[in-house]
């Protein structure tokens, strides 16, 4: 086993443990934004997609890497935007009756 692989495996295992430690503390109330936020994090695959696109020379590789880049960007952008949209709805007190309550008159 090469030193690089060993180092990569170390990073992998420690990151999993770190993930367990951090995520166990997230309350159930936030599980949907958590999943959606984690979802955006795996959009990091865009970095890899950019690398394969950069070295693509034949048509097949170019098509595959284009799809990979598009998929990954969709994952990143969509994931973060929708997570933010969800999280801004979580308020300690009811919001002023302007935006969300506009649809129906205040009781």
């Amino acid at each position: 086993m090469s030193t690089e692989l060993l180092a990569a495996l170390t990073v992998f295992v420690l990151a999993i443990l770190c993930g367990f430690a951090v995520i166990s503390k997230v309350p159930a109330t936030l599980h949907t934004p958590l999943m959606s936020g984690a979802n955006s994090i795996h959009g990091i695959v865009l970095v890899g997609s950019m690398f394969i696109a950069a070295s693509a020379t034949d048509l097949l590789s170019q098509v595959l890497s284009f799809v990979a880049v598009a998929f990954a960007t969709m994952n990143v952008v969509g994931g973060y935007v929708v997570t933010d949209r969800m999280l801004q709805m979580f308020r300690r007190k009811p919001a002023e009756p302007k935006a969300a309550a506009a649809a129906e008159p205040k009781a």
């Binding site: 690089e4 990569a8 990073v11 992998f12 295992v13 990151a15 999993i16 443990l17 770190c18 993930g19 367990f20 951090v22 995520i23 958590l34 999943m35 984690a38 979802n39 994090i41 795996h42 990091i44 695959v45 970095v47 890899g48 690398f51 394969i52």
Partner: peptide
């Protein structure tokens, strides 16, 4: 790809 940031991010999501 031998890229650590993919490994870390992937592991975090896998754990979550």
């Amino acid at each position: 790809l031998g890229n650590d940031v993919l490994i870390i991010a992937g592991a975090l999501v896998g754990a979550s």
